[in-house]
Design a protein around this nucleic acid. Structure first.
Length: 306
DNA sequence: TGCGACACATATCG
DNA sequence: ACGATATGTGTCGC
């Protein structure tokens, strides 16, 4: 209708203007991640068969595609990423009834068999030149008024990635009814599971997870590259960064210290991070970096019935 | 030149 | 409907 038409036109106009800080338009699907790379094999405890994991991740905020198909983020702005994993042939119930092990590279001799206490998902960034790790930081909703953390490592059970719209509506919710519903999507409640199944003795991997609310999906929100990253090698040459999502097996070493083992990973294509230089702002970004049909479909979805 | 701190503005949440 | 909140970005000053 008319109001729709007006909104679409406003959006098109805004493509070359400042972006409002709470605009839901800031939620955009980012670049696709690679296929899963495998670093250490996983074995099923009961059968001894090896198990193939798959990682899934999506960027939901903070990156836009530039003129040459390069993906661009802003150093000063947040990005959001969700990640989950699955084990090939292990639907959820079967996963819950098993334990898994892998092999740890020992300092002295060869490899050592180790039990996986639980799986976990980690987000790391690298500079694509060298393989040097670049630190990421996470803010609370209070931003400057609150503390900064490294992004958490999420203990996780297998799960499906929620779609983009779900991640978008999940942001900044405090309403308990809404939170309860979102928690059902993002977490598995071990306590509830034990109550419902009347389980007394549990020899599965589930028992060794560190808490009752176990993420099905690792949700990284309010993430930024550390303020000290250098984004250019020379004044003309951008550096590229990549985001990596890692599946970890958390094991206990000889001294029963907890230790992560990298099992598999996926990575983003090269990303350009624009810094604070004024040349990166006020720019006329009209060269079609927003697809027209994308805009209209998003708004039809968002506005709903009269 | 780039960074920490603070400021302003504005859509969303409850 | 309206106050509080979250967050892109403008700016000052080192």
């Amino acid at each position: 209708m008319l109001s729709q038409q007006v909104k679409v036109e406003n959006l098109l106009e805004s493509a070359s203007k400042k972006v409002a800080p709470r605009s839901s338009d800031l939620y955009r699907v980012g670049p696709q991640f690679s296929q899963t790379n495998h670093h250490q094999q996983i074995y099923c405890h009961s059968t001894g068969m090896d198990v193939l994991p798959s990682l899934h991740a999506r960027i939901d905020r903070g990156f836009e595609v530039g003129d040459e198909g390069t993906w661009i983020g802003y150093k000063r702005n947040y990005f959001t990423l969700v990640a989950s994993f699955s084990l090939d042939g292990f639907e959820f119930q079967r996963f819950l009834q098993n334990r898994f092990y892998t092999y740890e590279k020992s300092k002295t001799s060869g490899e050592h068999k180790v039990d996986i206490s639980y799986f976990a998902i980690r987000l790391v960034a690298k500079c694509s030149d060298d393989e040097v790790n670049i630190s990421l930081v996470q803010h609370t909703p209070k931003r400057d008024k609150g503390p900064q953390f490294p992004p958490p490592i999420y203990p996780a059970v297998p799960g499906d990635l929620p779609d983009h719209g779900t991640v978008k509506v999940s942001s900044n919710k405090r309403n308990t009814t809404k939170l309860d519903n979102l928690n059902k999507i993002f977490y598995f409640d071990r306590g509830e599971y034990y109550r419902n199944t009347n389980l007394v003795k549990d020899d599965s991997i589930l028992k060794s997870y560190p808490s009752d609310m176990v993420p099905r999906v690792a949700r990284f929100e309010r993430i930024q590259f550390t303020s000290s990253i250098r984004m250019r090698t020379t004044s003309a040459n951008n550096r590229f960064f990549t985001l990596h999502v890692e599946l970890l097996g958390i094991v206990e070493d000889e001294d029963s210290h907890i230790q992560p083992i990298l099992l598999s990973s996926i990575e983003s294509p090269p990303l350009v991070i624009r810094g604070r230089s004024p040349s990166n702002y006020h720019k006329d970004k009209t060269s079609g970096y927003r697809a027209m049909d994308d805009i209209s479909s998003q708004h039809l979805q968002q506005m709903g019935p009269p």
